[in-house]
Amino acid sequence: MTRTYEFSVYAEGADLTAASTVEQLERAGYTHPAAAASVGIQALVFSRPAERLADAAESAAAEAECIAEVWIARNVRSGAVAVFDPVTMEPMDLDADPTPTDPTGAMPARPQRRIGRSQHIGSPLPLR
Rank of each mutant, 00 (worst) to 15 (best):
G79W: 07
A61I: 05
T2W: 13
R52G: 02
P111L: 11
S47Q: 06
R128V: 00
D15Y: 03
T88A: 14
P100W: 00
P86D: 03
G105W: 05
I72S: 01
A35N: 14
T21R: 04
E12M: 05
P124Q: 09
D85Q: 07
P108L: 03
Y30G: 00
P86A: 14
F84M: 10
E63F: 00
A11M: 11
S20E: 07
F7S: 09
A54V: 04
V22Y: 00
P86M: 04
S78E: 04
A106I: 04
S123H: 11
D97R: 15
I72M: 05
G13A: 10
I115K: 05
Q112R: 13
A11F: 09
E6R: 14
R113V: 06
I67Q: 00
P111M: 05
A34V: 11
V70T: 13
M92A: 15
A60F: 08
A61E: 00
T2D: 15
T31W: 10
G29H: 12
D97Q: 10
P103S: 13
I41M: 04
E12K: 10
A60V: 09
S123W: 00
G122N: 09
P111Y: 09
C66H: 06
T17E: 14
P126D: 06
Q42N: 07
P86E: 07
R77M: 11
Q42H: 12
R113K: 14
P103F: 07
V22R: 14
T4D: 13
R52W: 02
V87T: 15
P111Q: 10
G105C: 10
E58T: 14
A28H: 04
G122K: 04
A36R: 11
A82T: 13
